[in-house]
Design a protein around this nucleic acid. Structure first.
Lengths: 331, 331
DNA sequence: CTGTTAGCGCATTCAC
DNA sequence: GTGAATGCGCTAACAG
């Protein structure tokens, strides 16, 4: 029965004009006396304002669009948590659309969100194409990317190159000379290129890095086990914790001991990596913080302010039990 | 620059009235000639209708509210996937709110969603309180619960009792006589009561079932390891795969072999359970299907149709490597 | 401090 | 078939 009462109704009840009610609602000048009356009437009727009318009038929709690649991913979950922390606090509601890791669908989602009248859009992208850049230029609302970066658009990302570099230096110091980097396709620039390249550059001439390509799933990594071990590496660095987990299963089956027979490391710092056995050494990304910063930045953009693209998210190497000093063969 | 063009603008361009444009948009009578002109104008300008104005006018918002307990959970992710399958296909957009496993917040989310003018709400609840029931009665839009059930509200759930029963029968047949059920608090009726009770009833007088309480996190389960093993059970049944995973870490550390020393099983059928070593025997729930059915049911409710509460989701026991026949001590 | 007035963009009578 | 007129519920000048 609620929901049908309008500000006109409560204006009538209080013998005031609806302007006064509107002012009451929006913090304008209203006499104490009327304030009381209006407050009572609102409580009694259970009145709630009509968002559509309000938005139609004010142009500010207080709606944010978010495009994510998939929903069932730990990192996306944390990112979303961070984002909603900020938007909840600022009275924005978010419309979430799922691109299913499809770049084309991603563009469609942006379109659809735009049509819904959102004030701005966050895109957790899996690959920025020319089409994305084109849209970013055409739309009259701000677009902010995360997950991937590109010089022609606004973005807020993890510093994947730096993360790779930390890991590269770590394994170099641990005297590993023959390692495998189990990574993903370069179509995902962040993980496929920057993260890998950071590792390679920092590892430098310490030894050889062989690259094996897989995707983000447990299963694919598990299946790559034999190929990974072909070169008898002393360590395997996986582009994500998930990948490490899949490989771990292969190791278990083959009775390959971690870290005695081979060291293993990942990226991500998911909860799961601390509950595996052995616990996985990894670089943790604070996706929740990334989400918060991304949301904050979008808000700035919406208000016409500038944002700082270089404001990076802290990275932390979490040393656990899956890596040991290499026992180098006599050469 | 797009987004500002209204039906009035394109009406002017075509020398027709905006009524005609509106008719064109909504499939009313328009002459072929005008149809063409309007179509061209729309394409040229990139016109898109203002959702708020439309919704203000038509009352149908085509918006659905969804309340979930957390975002970073596999089951919630799958559920959401199923839900969005259906809503995407029916041109509904969803507003998602996160309750953080807090019953009070859940009610607030429902309120907030209602105020946003959604046509209906799906609540993936972690506990239905009197407040929930009260709201369900007051609101003039349909409310559909999932995750938890209650005789006073509409719901669509997994049959947790049946799932527990399948597991109970399984362990009974496998001759286990001294087992531990590592479950969660009864405040979560579905998992805490029905799932457990189903197990106990089906296991029956085959032996003793000791109950140990934990929460849904890996870590808590890991910490309960010692308490779980105190009674030297031949099998541990965990209320979720996550819980099994946490316990597994304890077993690994303690050199307790699964399934040789103790059998282990979970509920959920998450991907992760197939990549653990040993692979976890579990009961898989099709959360995606549940999501689809839930969404479909809400649509029916919105259209004033009846829904079938008893239409259950299929359950499947997935036998893998973590359970073996009990080697019973001579008695 | 308050009421009156005028739209926001659209769908929908109702005459033509 | 089409256009003019009306109002959805609300905010924002504007004069009082």
């Amino acid at each position: 029965m609620a929901g049908k009462v309008t500000i006109q109704d409560i204006a009538n009840m209080c013998q005031v004009s609806k302007s006064s009610v509107s002012r009451y609602l929006n913090g304008g000048y209203v006499s104490e006396e009327n304030k009381e009356k209006i407050k009572d009437a609102i409580e009694k009727t259970g009145f709630s304002e009509n968002f559509f009318a309000k938005r139609l009038k004010t142009k500010k929709t207080c709606l944010i669009g978010i495009v994510i690649p998939r929903i069932d991913s730990v990192s996306v979950g944390k990112l979303l948590n961070g984002i909603s922390d900020v938007f909840d606090a600022n009275n924005y509601t978010s419309l979430i659309q799922i691109s299913n890791l499809d770049s084309k669908k991603e563009v469609q989602c942006i379109q659809s969100l735009y049509q819904q009248g959102v004030d701005g859009i966050i895109v957790d992208s899996c690959g920025i194409t020319k089409k994305h850049i084109e849209m970013a230029g055409q739309l009259d609302i701000p677009l902010l990317f995360t997950g991937q970066k590109n010089e022609y658009v606004n973005y807020k990302v993890i510093d994947d190159y730096a993360a790779g570099a930390i890991m590269g230096k770590y394994f170099r110091n641990f005297k590993h000379r023959n390692v495998v980097f189990l990574g993903v396709s370069e179509s995902d620039e962040s993980v496929g290129i920057y993260r890998k390249q950071g590792f390679i550059d920092a590892f430098g001439d310490a030894g050889t890095v062989r690259f094996v390509e897989t995707d983000f799933s447990f299963l694919a990594a598990y299946r790559k086990g034999a190929e990974v071990m072909k070169s008898k590496p002393t360590a395997v660095i996986c582009a994500t914790d998930n990948i490490a987990l899949g490989l771990m299963r292969y190791f278990n089956e083959q009775q390959i001991k971690v870290p005695q027979d081979v060291s293993l490391a990942g990226f991500g710092g998911y909860d799961i990596s601390s509950v595996m056995y052995p616990r996985l050494t990894t670089i943790s990304f604070d996706y929740t913080l990334l989400g918060q910063k991304t949301a904050l930045s979008l808000l700035r953009l919406i208000n016409g302010e500038e944002i700082n693209l270089q404001d990076e998210i802290p990275l932390k190497l979490i040393e656990r039990d899956s890596v040991q000093m290499a026992v180098n063969e006599i050469e």
